[in-house]
Amino acid sequence: MQLTYLIRRLAFLVFVVWSAITLLFFLPRLSPINPVRERFAELQRSTGWAPRDLERLVKVYEVKFGLNKPLHEQYLEYMGSLLRGDLGYSIMRYPRTVGDLIAQALPWTIGLLTVTTLLTFAIGTGIGALAAWPRSPQWVKGMVTPLVVLAAIPPYLLGLLLIYFVAFRAKLLPMGGAYTLGRFAEPELSMPFLLDVARHAILPALSLILSTVGFWALGMRGMGVTVQGEDYVTFAEHKGLDLSRIFYAYYVRNAILPQVTALALAFGSIVSSGILVEYLYGFPGLGSLLNAAILANDFFVIYGIGLITILAVAVSMMVVDLLYPLLDPRIRYTRA
């Protein structure tokens, strides 16, 4: 029973990923811009170098990237190379490969966004749970309102404010980047470097946390209000249990279930949720890379990052589906 469920769930995962990639493949192609020509135009603007035979050069590179073939052939070819694990070459940074670019940017994004997502989940859920708990002091219950106001401000705007006040005026923290470029030639695994990275990450993390923690708090408070009035919470008190045991095992344990689903979704959108903030802080993650790729119409980099995003969402959803029975015993996959 469990095994057939797992197989069905995997098949569904493959289907979701395939259809999302297909959609993603055709979307950027709707644009009339030719990325190869753009690349040379860009080169010309920045260096003043004008190739004598631009059209032939464009043709050569179109053949190189396979852009000269009909769209459906390109699609089949791309799917074929994906199956071989080949993400292709970047157009804007040729001859670097997409895989190489992503491998360089991914750790930064995962580092920043995993930490912020987990922190926001923990802080927001904690505040929301306390806000709905009848015995909390009044000031705790009132905390949700300012957080929801903050949640109405987009993270990049919050980021701008933080940069202005904290980094520019007060000069407490660096304005951007992932580490001090003059001090370290390239990333290394040493204490000073990690501390430097942490210092650079505080502001981007703060803009992401402050702008989303309100949603978590609001969601948890909503569930908490329902659960704290349930008979089993009252009966637990009738049994003479300690308040802390009632709080965790009877109240939070039941109210947190929808939050866990939301956490998985949030993990899935790790790549996309930080794009603007990464760009704002010049943070060398996937968000900045995707931004550059979209500006340059670099199909293959867009596809590559898109693929990662899709995989992240689909896999985390599947993991939640598989973990949910452990959290909620009422859910069991027993369909024949």
Binding site: Y232, F235, A236, N254, D328, R330
Partner: peptide, 10 residues
């Protein structure tokens, strides 16, 4: 009979 028992605990 309704929900005096915590649904997530044995």
């Amino acid at each position: 009979a309704m929900n005096a028992l915590n649904p997530v605990l044995r």
